[in-house]
């Protein structure tokens, strides 16, 4: 076994250690790198920025706790933009864990912007059945959600007074870590009830959203922690996403280095035995 073969067969726990260290060092040092903004993220920002004061925005918290490190900084940046502009938000979720996530975010925003539940925002909560919920909200919002998350009758909540369908919203922010119901909000919601949608999704899902962007079915894509960092930059503050970008760069360099090393070792370990018989 030559040195290259030995490198190829290194115990994977050393690789784990390298990844852990390369992620931890930038966090301990805590510095930030300049962020550049892509047109996809600007698409969402501009759409929200163009809404008139008092406009109604629907926000769907369709991500699991596993995606929170990516999605929470993004959700916070976008909600700060929305509430900062004096827009009103109605939250909803297509997945059970979205309730806890939405509730925590609303509580944080309530403190930060001195909001009032039922007047500045409301949280409808969760209902199962993906496309059945999207279509239910489109057909009869208060029938589908007779009570909001806080057990109040939706017919008596002030913010929902003139809201009876998806049609009555001016914009929708879809925060998601999966396609849920076959891109339900786009295929069923936007198409049947004409609601404009911005997509905020995990990095894994971002590649799959580009066809919808090109077809103008979404106004923009905020993808993963990188997208969140861009949104933080547009909002003019440095939050956990922008700080996380340094660690992301550092782990990337490590992984790219490992891929290159793996390939070099692979090529060189193969070359050696060919030479041996002649030598």
């Amino acid at each position: 076994m030559n040195i290259w073969e030995r490198i190829l067969q290194i115990d994977r726990r050393y690789i784990f250690l390298l990844i852990g260290i390369s992620g931890a060092i930038p966090i301990i040092m805590s510095f930030s790198l300049p962020t550049f903004v892509t047109p996809e993220v600007r698409g969402v920002y501009n759409a929200i920025d163009a809404l008139p004061e008092g406009a109604m925005v629907l926000v769907s918290f369709d991500y699991e706790p596993s995606a929170m490190p990516e999605m929470d900084p993004m959700a916070k940046a976008i909600l700060r933009h929305i509430f900062g502009r004096g827009l009103k938000v109605v939250g909803v979720t297509l997945i059970p864990y979205g309730t806890g996530i939405g509730e925590e975010l609303f509580v944080a925003m309530e403190r930060e912007f001195n909001l009032k539940q039922g007047v500045d925002y409301d949280f409808l909560g969760y209902k199962p059945g993906y496309q059945a919920v999207v279509l239910g909200l489109g057909q009869d919002l208060k029938g589908s959600f007779p009570k909001n998350f806080y057990e109040q009758d939706t017919r008596t909540v002030p913010i929902l007074k003139d809201i009876n369908s998806l049609r009555d919203f001016d914009y929708m922010m879809w925060l998601h870590d999966d396609a849920y119901g076959g891109y339900g909000w786009i295929i069923y919601g936007r198409q049947n009830y004409g609601i404009d949608i911005g997509s905020g999704c995990t990095a894994i899902l971002a590649t799959g959203m580009y066809p919808f962007l090109q077809a103008e079915q979404v106004t923009g894509i905020v993808g993963g922690l990188k997208g969140a960092a861009e949104y933080e930059k547009l909002m003019g503050y440095t939050g956990s996403a922008r700080l996380g970008m340094v660690a992301q760069s550092s782990i990337h360099v490590m992984i790219i280095g490992l891929i290159l090393l793996g390939n070099i070792a692979f090529i060189l370990s193969k070359r050696k035995p060919k030479k041996e018989p002649s030598g």
């Binding site: 994977r12 690789i15 390298l18 990844i19 782990i251 490590m254 793996g262």
Partner: peptide
């Protein structure tokens, strides 16, 4: 994240 890095290397 760790397993992806290890798989990428191998």
């Amino acid at each position: 994240a760790f397993y992806i890095a290890s798989a990428a290397y191998r």
